[in-house]
Structures are given as C-alpha cells and as structure tokens.
C-alpha cells in the first residue's frame, strides 16, 4: 500500500513494527513502531506517558516526511 501511495505522487511515511516487512514491501520512509498490537502506544504506561510516546513517533514521522532521502531509510529514535 505504501509503495502505491508513493507511486501516485504522495509522500508517505510507514509507521511499522516489523521493519523487515516494511522494507520488503518497498516503503521508503520507515519509522519503527512500539509493538504489533499497539504500534503507537504502550498499555503498561500511564495515559499521559503513553501519549508522549505516541507523539514522539508521530513527530519522527513528520521529520521523515521532511527529510530528503535517495534510498529506503529507517528513522530510528534519537
């Protein structure tokens, strides 16, 4: 899906837990997520802390969208 969206001319970032699958399907901008059943969260954390985790991933996704790349790139947490 990511590849087809990019092919259509829309810059896209893939937030995915299993990064090797994301690479195989041809995503170019990849942001690793937390876990398969909760990619953008963590039920063990308090609500507020959990939202911070989510915000960090979304902010990293926006940064990925604003970064020039010429090959598949994984944007790890800094």
């Amino acid at each position: 899906m990511v590849k087809e969206i990019e092919r259509a001319g829309l810059p896209v970032v893939h937030v995915a837990t299993v990064v090797p699958i994301s690479k195989t399907v041809g995503a170019n901008r990849i942001v690793p997520a937390v876990a398969i059943p909760y990619p953008l969260g963590d039920p063990d954390k308090a609500k507020e802390k959990e939202k911070k985790i989510r915000r960090e991933i979304v902010e990293r996704s926006l940064k990925a969208l604003q970064t020039e790349i010429d090959e598949q790139t994984v944007f790890e947490k800094e």
């Binding site: 899906m1 087809e4 969206i5 829309l10 810059p11 896209v12 893939h14 937030v15 994301s22 059943p37």
Partner: peptide
Amino acid sequence: NAKAYAQEIAEKLLGDGVQAVILTST
C-alpha cells in the same frame, strides 16, 4: 488487492488536496 485499494485511496486523497500520508501498520 492491497495495491488496488492503495491506488484508489491515493486518487481520492490527491483529489481532496492531501499532500502527505502517515500509514500505520500493526
């Protein structure tokens, strides 16, 4: 199927003036 859905979705998004996409996968 995934390819066909994404092509349709992209067309609709472009039609609505969307400029960037965040796609999440589990």
